[in-house]
C-alpha cells in the first residue's frame, strides 16, 4: 500500500476537510499551551546563541552590525531546528500518531495543522523577538523591517522542512543529532535568501525580490512538504 498521494474520495460524511484541519489545529495549540514551559526553551536558546557571538568574536559595534543579518538568521534557524525533534515524538510514544494515521481523514491536513501550530508556537515568537536580538547585535534600524518580514516568510518553511526530518527520525532513539544532519543542508536556501533580505534592507536595496523568493519557497513547501511528512510518518510507524 503505497498511498503517498492518494486522492481522497469525495463521498465522505461528517466533518469536512476544513473541519478536521480546525480540530487538529485547536488540539495541537491546546497541547502546546498546556506544556507552556517547553515553548519558552527555543526562545531562550535563540537569545543565548545571539549572546555567544559578541563574546566569541568581538563586541565592536561596527563589526557586529555587519554580521548581524546572518547571525540573527543562523540563531533563528538553530532555534527552530532544536524545537523540531519533539514535533511528533510525544504522539508517537503515546499512540495518538498511529491513530491519526489510521483515520480516513486526509493525513496531509492533520500534518499541516501540526506544522502550523508548531510555527505559531516557535516561528512566530522568534520573529517577534528578532528585533531585540537585532538591537543587541547593532543591526541598523533600517534592517529591522526586512529582518521581521524575512523571518515571517522564512520560518514557516523551516518548520515544514524540519518536520520532514522529525517524521523520518521519530521512531529512532538517537533522533536528536540525526535530524540536524538531515535538515541543515536543506535549510541553506532559506538562510541565503533570508539573510540576503536583511542585508538588502540595511543597504537600502529593494526587498521585494528576496521576499518573493522566500514566499515561493514557502508555497512550494506547503504543497510538497506535507506529502513527504505523511509518507515519512507512515514509514516510521510501520518500521
Amino acid at each position: 500500500m503505497s498511498e503517498i498521494a492518494t486522492n481522497e474520495p469525495a463521498r465522505r460524511r461528517g466533518p469536512g476537510a476544513a473541519g478536521v484541519f480546525r480540530a487538529a489545529l485547536k488540539r495541537d495549540l491546546l497541547l502546546a499551551f498546556r506544556s507552556r514551559s517547553d515553548l519558552v526553551n527555543p526562545l531562550i536558546f535563540f537569545l543565548m546563541v545571539a549572546t555567544l557571538f559578541p563574546l566569541g568574536v568581538s563586541p565592536e559595534p561596527g563589526f557586529l552590525a555587519q554580521l548581524a543579518p546572518g547571525l540573527v538568521w543562523v540563531a533563528a534557524l538553530l532555534a527552530t531546528l532544536l524545537s523540531m525533534d519533539s514535533l511528533f515524538r510525544a504522539d508517537y510514544e503515546d499512540g495518538t500518531l498511529e491513530q491519526a494515521l489510521l483515520s480516513p481523514q486526509p493525513l496531509i491536513l492533520i500534518v499541516l495543522a501540526r506544522v502550523l501550530a508548531h510555527w505559531i508556537m516557535t516561528g512566530l515568537p522568534l520573529t517577534l523577538m528578532a528585533p531585540l536580538l537585532g538591537v543587541m547585535l547593532f543591526l541598523p534600524a533600517e534592517g529591522m523591517g526586512g529582518l521581521m518580514l524575512s523571518l515571517l516568510l522564512g520560518t514557516p518553511t523551516l518548520s515544514l522542512i524540519g518536520a520532514i526530518g522529525a517524521a523520518l527520525t521519530v521512531g529512532l532513539r538517537k533522533g536528536g543529532v540525526l535530524i540536524s544532519l538531515l535538515v541543515l543542508p536543506l535549510y541553506i536556501p532559506v538562510l541565503i535568501f533570508g539573510s540576503g533580505a536583511v542585508q538588502a534592507a540595511v543597504t537600502g536595496l529593494p526587498l521585494a525580490g528576496y521576499l518573493a523568493l522566500l514566499g515561493a519557497m514557502l508555497a512550494l513547501g506547503v504543497v510538497l512538504a506535507p506529502l513527504a511528512i505523511g509518507a515519512a510518518l507512515r514509514i516510521s510507524v510501520s518500521g
Binding site: 478536521v20 488540539r27 497541547l31 499512540g95 495518538t96 491519526a100 483515520s103
Partner: peptide, 21 residues
Amino acid sequence: PGVKATLTPQENLGWYAALQP
C-alpha cells in the same frame, strides 16, 4: 493507549470524533 495525558478525557474523545467522520 492513544490518549494524550495533558488533555481531558472529553478532549481526547473529541479528537477521535474529528478523526472518524
